[in-house]
Simulated scan of single mutants.
Amino acid sequence: MEQWFAAHLGDAMLAGDELERVCTLFDQQRERNATTAVLMRHENFGRLHCELVLYFPPELAELAAAVGAQACGRPGLSGLGVAIGSPRRLAELAASD
């Protein structure tokens, strides 16, 4: 099983600055393949507002560590989108299910 990482950015309405920081760090990554992407999902943990959670694939472990992401399992596809990178990453995930 490949090790994924998740970063909880908090209230989705207030996560813009942190998301922008992650995007900037992603753009600085030199060793990534054509389908690498940081994925995202708005998740509700029983609170009033949903939380923005970013998912980093194994090849972005260094970036995940830089933003304080924690190890997690591979995310499910439901509600998953691309925060930055290649949209083909979602198709790869779907094909491997």
Rank of each mutant, 00 (worst) to 15 (best):
A91L: 13
R41N: 08
H8L: 11
G10W: 01
T35W: 08
S96F: 00
R32V: 07
V82T: 00
A95Q: 09
V67F: 04
A83T: 03
D17Y: 05
G68L: 08
Q3G: 00
S86P: 06
Q28M: 04
A95G: 12
Q29M: 02
L39N: 00
A65F: 08
A95N: 09
N44A: 13
A12G: 05
C50N: 12
A66E: 15
C23I: 05
L63V: 05
M1L: 09
M13L: 08
L60C: 05
V22C: 07
R32A: 01
R74F: 04
R21Y: 12
A65G: 07
A71R: 15
F56W: 02
L9K: 01
H42Y: 15
E20Q: 14
D17A: 15
G85A: 06
S86A: 08
D97G: 03
V38P: 01
D97L: 11
G76T: 09
M1T: 06
A6F: 08
E62K: 14
L60Y: 06
Q29T: 10
F56G: 02
E51T: 15
E20T: 12
R74K: 10
S86H: 03
G73Q: 04
R32D: 03
M1S: 10
A6K: 10
L48M: 14
N44T: 07
A69P: 07
M40D: 09
Q28I: 00
G46T: 02
Q70A: 12
M1C: 03
P57Q: 02
A61Q: 14
L63M: 03
V67R: 12
A71V: 14
F45Q: 03
G16I: 00
E31H: 10
A61H: 15
D97S: 11
S96D: 11
F5Y: 13
A66H: 11
E92G: 09
L14H: 15
I84S: 04
T36K: 05
L90D: 04
A12E: 15
R21G: 07
G73S: 09
S78D: 13
R74Q: 14
L77F: 12
L52D: 01
C23F: 08
A65Q: 15
F5P: 05
C72K: 00
E31D: 14
S86M: 03
A91G: 04
F26V: 04
C23M: 12
R88N: 08
P87F: 01
E18I: 01
A95I: 04
A66F: 00
Q70M: 11
M40F: 14
L52I: 03
E62R: 14
V53T: 04
F56I: 01
V53M: 02
L48P: 07
G85F: 03
R21D: 07
C50Y: 06
F26L: 05
D17N: 13
L25E: 14
G85P: 05
H8M: 07
Y55N: 01
A66N: 12
G46I: 12
A91H: 11
C23Y: 10
M1G: 14
L54D: 01
V22Y: 05
R74W: 09
A66Q: 15
F45W: 12
A64N: 09
E2R: 12
P57R: 03
R30I: 00
G73V: 08
H49D: 08
R47E: 14
